[in-house]
Amino acid sequence: MDTIAIAPMSRRNSITLMCCGGLLLALAILLNPFWPGPSVGLGVTSLALLFLGFIKRQDKVVSVHLTPEGLHYHHRKGEWFLPWGEIQRLDQPRLPDTHEPLDFVGLRLIPEHTHLEHIRPRLALALLMEQRPLHQLTASCDEGACMPSLSSKKHPHLTGVMAAYAAQMNQLRDGLGFDLYLPHSVLDRSSEQMVSLIKQYRQQALHQGD
């Protein structure tokens, strides 16, 4: 089977934004002696475009690799890998009350998964912060539950960031049904199409491994 590389949508147009920002900045400098007021506005706009383009360029060129061995997720703070056999279910997560699909690919892992043993604290902290909006969808903010617990009853040996990450994983599993989430911004197609692609690839990979 050939490896499939997924390039993130968030990286698109980064060069265009930086080129436009550079041109506007040059124009602002040229106009400043003659029209200082408008040139300031152009300068601010150009810096905003340059900054946005720079931020987009920080994302990985490839965010997801589908290989015969499993799924590789490449994040700017690190990466994780899941063998196909450790994925119990994958689909779009849905809101608990309305069942409206969320723009994510959800991955539910088998109970014996080893994901927490291989992820780095730096990446765990980044995912902990990025997935806070998902956690808030299933938590009661009035009861002060919008922040994940700093300890995990299922993983008492973990401490600090890793304990908080494990606790949030458990809470998201209970609330939305999945352990890991790929946001639409790291994909090159809709979440629904990505789910279909991964399912098909996984089935072929497992079939070849038999």
Rank of each mutant, 00 (worst) to 15 (best):
G106L: 01
P121M: 05
L90K: 11
L134H: 07
A145F: 00
C141S: 12
L107Q: 04
D103L: 01
R122Q: 10
V105M: 06
L128N: 03
P96F: 10
P148R: 05
E86T: 06
P121T: 10
L107M: 07
M162N: 01
P121C: 06
G160K: 02
K153Y: 01
E100A: 15
H157R: 13
H157T: 15
H99W: 13
Q168K: 00
E112C: 06
L102A: 00
F104Y: 15
L123C: 01
P156Q: 05
G144V: 03
L90Q: 10
D142Q: 10
C146P: 08
E117A: 13
D142S: 04
M147V: 12
H157M: 13
M169F: 00
M129G: 07
L150G: 15
A164C: 01
R120S: 14
D103I: 07
L158A: 03
H118D: 11
P148V: 07
H99Y: 14
H113R: 05
G85Q: 10
V105Y: 09
N170T: 14
L158M: 12
T114K: 10
L150M: 12
E117P: 06
S149M: 01
I119H: 01
K153H: 12
W84H: 04
P101M: 07
D91F: 05
G106W: 05
G144E: 01
G85H: 06
P96Q: 13
H155P: 02
D174S: 14
G106S: 04
A126C: 02
A139C: 09
G175V: 10
E112I: 10
P93G: 00
C146S: 03
P156T: 05
H113A: 12
Q88M: 11
L172V: 11
R94S: 12
T114A: 11
R132S: 12
I87T: 00
L102V: 02
R94A: 15
H113C: 03
E117S: 12
P133G: 03
E143N: 02
P83Q: 03
R173G: 09
L150R: 12
K154L: 12
E130V: 08
M169D: 10
P96A: 12
E112D: 15
K153L: 11
G160E: 05
L128G: 07
A124C: 07
A166C: 01
A166P: 01
H118W: 04
L172M: 06
S152C: 15
V161P: 07
P96Y: 08
A145N: 10
R132N: 08
K154G: 02
P93Y: 01
G144W: 09
V105L: 05
T114E: 13
G85K: 08
L150D: 15
